[in-house]
Amino acid sequence: MDHHDGFREFVLARQQALMRTAYLLTGDAHLAEDLLQSVLIKVAGQWGKLSRGGNPEAYTRKALVNQYISWRRRPRPELPSAEVPERAAIGDDATLDRIVLRQALAKLGPRQRAVIVLRFWEDLTEAQAAEVLGCSVGTVKSQTHHALTRLRTIAPELAHLLNDPEIVEVSR
């Protein structure tokens, strides 16, 4: 029996969800691919242990967040590009909201951004997010509160999204 048995199936089954998380963390499709690939290499190395009794999904999510935070700590030089980035055609309010929200998320610190992604996109509970981030539930609560406050300051045009009663309750 190969110690990688089941790894391929895990990746095929969870790749889309993990890629979404990576994209929401990085805000860039190419960086998200790089992030996910580097994490999956680490997961493959631990697969024997994970498949025998660990939680591969939780381990992989935690590795994504940790790797993303690690990348954000290292300064990277900007690389010139011969191509001008494409601009999205703004056709409706939802599209505009997504663009503004993505830009606002990019201005958050890595841990605050991770908390917002895990709590609101991945729909994890405070306890689950705390486990992924390796911190206390209280830290998740305070980081969520501070991140939402910062988002309200950075992007007041998103007030209709950030003033949802459920979000207001979570941030208290």
Rank of each mutant, 00 (worst) to 15 (best):
E166S: 09
R8I: 06
I99W: 07
F10S: 07
S51E: 02
G134M: 08
E169P: 00
E83R: 14
W47M: 02
A127Y: 06
E157I: 12
E157P: 12
D92Q: 14
K107R: 11
S142V: 14
H30P: 11
H4P: 06
D93N: 13
L50K: 03
H145L: 12
D92T: 15
V43K: 02
D34E: 01
A147G: 15
L18F: 02
L18P: 03
I116G: 06
K141H: 02
L158I: 08
V137G: 05
L18V: 03
P56S: 10
S142Y: 14
R102P: 09
G27D: 11
R61G: 05
E86S: 15
A13F: 02
L133A: 06
A58T: 10
S38L: 06
L148P: 12
T149L: 00
R14H: 01
L105H: 08
I116A: 07
L101P: 06
T26C: 14
E166H: 11
K42E: 00
I116E: 05
A94I: 15
S171E: 13
M19L: 13
L148N: 09
K42F: 01
V168K: 14
Y59R: 02
V132M: 13
W121Y: 06
L105A: 10
L101F: 14
V117N: 01
T139W: 07
A32R: 01
R152Q: 11
D97M: 13
L12M: 00
E86K: 12
K107D: 06
S51P: 07
A88Y: 14
S70K: 08
Y68D: 10
C135D: 12
E83C: 11
L64W: 04
L101A: 13
E9M: 07
G54A: 11
P85H: 08
G134H: 05
E131T: 09
V168L: 12
E122D: 04
K42I: 03
D28S: 10
S81P: 15
A44Y: 00
Y59H: 09
T21S: 00
Q16A: 09
V100H: 08
R87T: 04
L35W: 05
A82S: 15
G45N: 01
L101Q: 15
Q15H: 04
R172Q: 07
D123T: 04
T149Q: 03
E86L: 14
Q112F: 06
I116K: 01
A13S: 05
E126A: 14
K107H: 08
E166N: 12
R8P: 09
R72V: 07
R74T: 01
P56L: 03
K62Q: 10
I90Q: 14
A29L: 11
G109K: 05
I90M: 10
A114I: 11
G109R: 04
G6K: 07
R74P: 00
A82C: 13
A58W: 09
R61T: 04
E169K: 13
A82L: 15
I90G: 11
S38E: 12
S70C: 04
T149Y: 10
T153A: 13
L148K: 12
P85Q: 07
W71S: 05
I99R: 14
G134E: 00
W71R: 12
W47T: 03
Q16F: 00
S81V: 15
P77R: 10
K62V: 05
M1F: 11
E169H: 11
H146V: 03
P56N: 00
F10R: 04
P165A: 01
